[in-house]
């Protein structure tokens, strides 16, 4: 089906979790719960020690996953084992991709991209790889037949936007606000502005908005503003973290995740309903 194909007639719900948070087994159950809850694409984090684009919530997830022993090799095993309908997109930082060596000692991004594609990864999001440095990764992804998703920020000007769209595939990750990841209670007004700018390009790629979305209501408003999908990370990681802290049984936490996933997916779908158009605020 592919990543782009997962954005169908309905607005897509794209959740993020860090693989291995808080343990490999629990995390598998959580990812599968998101799938049950209606995920269309799943961004599966491969934890890196210096997550410079993440706020405290996802930093916490990354730290727990590393403590649980997650490594690039175990991640590939995780991808093979986890049972989801939704295509998996690997979200990680460039150093892990760059350092990976396979049996043939193939260096640079090639080895990891191919190994990940073999395991079932269908795309990549690499937050510290701007278009200037993305050439080798883009070629590796083309070669392996997987997507490389570009991130568009509120600060991205038109010249950069054009170059970004040229190398992006799968979808475009529209960063809803300045800053780092983290759930917020409001929805940034700059989202609508970025979406409107993207609209001017005949980029057929779906536009998924992330950074700060935490409720079905947020998801609805984001879709009304023109998004083809919503990306939700920190709000879901909060559920994992709270459950872990309280020592709750894994199936209970998984159910909570499935419920929140359902709320977010339903909210996103509602955003497409014709109805009294409510303008995007603040």
């Amino acid at each position: 089906m592919g990543v782009e194909g997962a954005f169908g007639s309905e607005p897509a719900f794209v959740p993020y979790l860090a693989a291995g948070d808080p343990s490999v087994e629990a995390s598998k159950a959580y990812v599968e719960a998101l799938d049950r809850g209606g995920a269309d694409v799943i961004e599966l984090g491969l934890p890196f020690s210096e997550p410079i684009a993440e706020g405290p919530t996802i930093q916490g997830a990354v730290a727990r996953a590393l403590r649980a022993g997650m490594t690039p090799r175990r991640y590939l095993g995780f991808v093979r084992d986890v049972d989801t309908e939704a295509p998996l997109v690997c979200m990680t930082y460039y150093n892990l991709i760059y350092q990976f060596r396979d049996e043939t000692e193939r260096g640079g991004p090639d080895a990891f991209v191919h190994a990940a594609a073999d395991a079932g990864v269908e795309g990549f999001v690499v937050p510290d790889l701007p278009v200037e440095e993305a050439g080798p990764m883009r070629r590796a992804c083309d070669d392996a037949g997987v997507d490389l998703v570009s991130i568009v920020a509120p600060t991205t000007g038109d010249g950069r936007l054009r170059r970004l769209l040229e190398i992006s595939s799968g979808y475009v990750y529209v960063q809803a606000r300045l800053g780092v990841t983290g759930a917020r209670d409001d929805v940034s007004g700059r989202t609508a502005e970025t979406l409107a700018r993207l609209q001017q390009y005949e980029a057929a790629l779906p536009k998924a908005v992330g950074f700060g979305i935490r409720t079905g209501d947020h998801a609805e408003r984001i879709v009304r503003a023109g998004a083809d999908g919503v990306i939700v990370g920190s709000a879901l990681v909060d559920v994992v973290a709270d459950g872990h802290e309280a020592g709750d049984p894994v199936p209970d936490v998984a159910d909570r995740l499935a419920d929140l996933a359902d709320e977010l997916k339903t909210g996103a779908v509602r955003g497409r309903d014709p109805g009294p158009a409510e303008p995007e605020r603040n």
Binding site: I52, A53, Y94, P127, D128, L129, P130, V131, E132, E133, S150, I151, V152, A153, P154, T155, T156, G157, R160, L164, Q175, L178, G179
Partner: peptide
């Protein structure tokens, strides 16, 4: 060298 940073910082 190079510029391995999030897109949000690239314009800066």
């Amino acid at each position: 060298g190079g510029q391995y940073v999030p897109e949000v910082l690239m314009p800066a």
